[in-house]
Computed example of a mutant assay.
Amino acid sequence: MLPRTLPEPELFLPGRGEPSLRWGVIGAGWIAGFFADAVRAHTAQTVVAVAARRPERAEEFARAHGIHTAHATVDALIDDPFVDVVYIAAPQIDHLALGLQVIAAGKHVLIEKPLATTAADARRLTSAAQAAGVFLMEAMWSRYQPQALMIRALAAEGILGDITSVMADHGQPLADDPSHRLLVPGTGGGALLDLGIYPIQLDSMVLGDPTSITAVGSLTASGVDATSTVVLGHGVEQSTLMTSILTKTPTLATICGTDARIEIDGPFHIPTGLTLRSADLFEPPVRWTDDTGVSLMDGLAWEATALARFVGEGRAESPLHTHAETASILATIDEARRQLGAL
Rank of each mutant, 00 (worst) to 15 (best):
I163K: 09
T326A: 10
I333N: 03
P210M: 04
R337W: 10
T292P: 08
R57I: 02
V134D: 07
A105S: 05
I31T: 11
G188M: 12
T254Q: 15
K113L: 08
V102Y: 03
A139V: 09
T247W: 13
I67R: 00
G293A: 10
V166K: 05
M150W: 06
D259M: 08
T289C: 12
P14Y: 09
D334W: 07
I78M: 07
L21N: 05
A104R: 06
E112S: 00
L174R: 13
A226D: 12
T275D: 03
E263Y: 00
I197Y: 10
L11N: 04
D169C: 11
Q339Y: 11
H65T: 07
M167C: 14
F82M: 12
V294F: 04
G273R: 01
Q172G: 00
I159W: 14
R181S: 15
G223L: 07
L300G: 12
R124C: 13
V50G: 03
V25N: 12
E303L: 14
D121I: 05
H71I: 13
L136D: 01
T243K: 11
R4N: 14
Q45I: 01
K248Y: 14
L192S: 09
A304Y: 03
G341I: 15
R338N: 12
W288S: 02
D280M: 08
L320F: 03
I333V: 15
L320T: 02
R123G: 03
A301N: 04
P285A: 12
A342S: 15
A331D: 08
P199V: 11
Q147K: 08
M137N: 02
E335P: 06
S328D: 04
S244Y: 12
T164Q: 15
H234Q: 01
R54M: 00
C256A: 15
L11G: 01
T229M: 11
T258W: 11
W302T: 05
D94W: 12
P3Q: 04
S20R: 14
G158F: 01
A90H: 13
H170C: 14
A253W: 00
